[in-house]
């Protein structure tokens, strides 16, 4: 266990895995986009415009999923003092913020033609915007403390406090009257979305998840090098790559 959690071992393992997972990401993304944009039928109400869902919905799912991973890794780092968990939590924040921004931006583009407005201060949209600010706050707090161990601890506490927002985002469409539609897929009973549209949606969600793994591994390798730059293994590695 300790071997796998050592930054040095993880650095080389991630380096070997990244090309394979990156290739898988490309294949899944292309297949998902093709099925979503060309194969899936038009919607009976929204016509072709609904196709933005294949980006919007997986991005929104990822924004919440990554936040839970980030807060979970933060808790692990606080309790067991595992450096790799701190590094993982830090790597999650910019990726999660990007997915949140993507969900907000595509939702806005979808809202104008369908609802008739770019933005509405309803509970779903507002809580998702708060999630974006939580990510930004995490990154700002983490960057404002020089010592990486202390920075990670402070940021982890912020992330854990923000976990309150996740059930609020998820249940906002049930608890309150919102302009945003209720859940189509993640609800009890059968999804209210036709299987021919559900398949590309789930494929895109899987592709986004694998994409997240690739980017997280790349960011983690980067942060490991930065933190361990004074250690002998990094010096040896740099020495061996010199021409």
């Amino acid at each position: 266990m300790h071997k796998y959690a050592s930054p040095k071992f993880f650095y080389s393992l991630a380096g070997q895995l990244i090309p394979w997972i990156a290739a898988l990401t490309a294949v899944l993304l292309l297949a998902g986009l093709y099925l979503g944009l060309f194969v899936a039928p038009a919607d009976y109400q929204q016509g072709e415009s609904y196709r933005i869902m294949f980006i919007h919905v997986p991005a929104a799912w990822m924004s919440m999923f990554i936040y839970m991973l980030m807060a979970g890794a933060g808790a692990v780092a606080l309790v067991w003092n595992i450096k790799l968990a701190e590094i993982f939590a830090n790597s999650c924040a910019p990726i999660g913020a990007s997915f949140t921004f993507l969900a907000l931006a595509t939702g806005s583009l979808w809202g104008k033609p369908m609802w008739g407005t770019w933005w509405a201060w309803d509970a779903r949209l507002t809580s998702e915007l708060i999630l974006f600010f939580l990510y930004i706050g995490y990154m700002a707090l983490q960057a404002s403390i020089d010592d990486p161990r202390r920075a990670a601890r402070a940021a982890a506490i912020l992330a854990l406090v923000g976990v309150v927002n996740i059930p609020v985002i998820h249940f906002s469409v049930e608890w309150w009257n919102t302009l945003h539609q209720p859940a189509s897929v993640s609800k009890i009973g059968t999804p209210s979305i036709h299987p021919s549209m559900l398949a590309p949606l789930l494929l895109m969600a899987f592709a986004f998840t694998i994409y997240f793994v690739v980017v997280a591994l790349l960011r983690m390798r980067n942060e490991i090098l930065e933190r361990e730059r004074h250690t002998t293994w990094v010096a040896d590695m740099l020495e061996s790559t010199k021409p």
């Binding site: 039928p41 038009a42 919607d43 009976y44 109400q45 929204q46 609904y50 869902m53 369908m114 609802w115 008739g116 407005t117 509405a120 302009l179 539609q181 209720p182 859940a183 189509s184 609800k187 209210s192 979305i193 036709h194 021919s196 549209m197």
Partner: peptide, 27 residues
């Protein structure tokens, strides 16, 4: 100001037409 609110159902027009023949009317 008037905004449209759509529900959570997504299906191709043919499926909606088939459903309308039955007891269930989407939307």
């Amino acid at each position: 100001e008037v905004l449209a609110k759509h529900d959570e159902k997504y299906m191709p027009p043919e499926a909606a037409k088939a459903l309308k023949g039955g007891t269930f009317m989407p939307g």
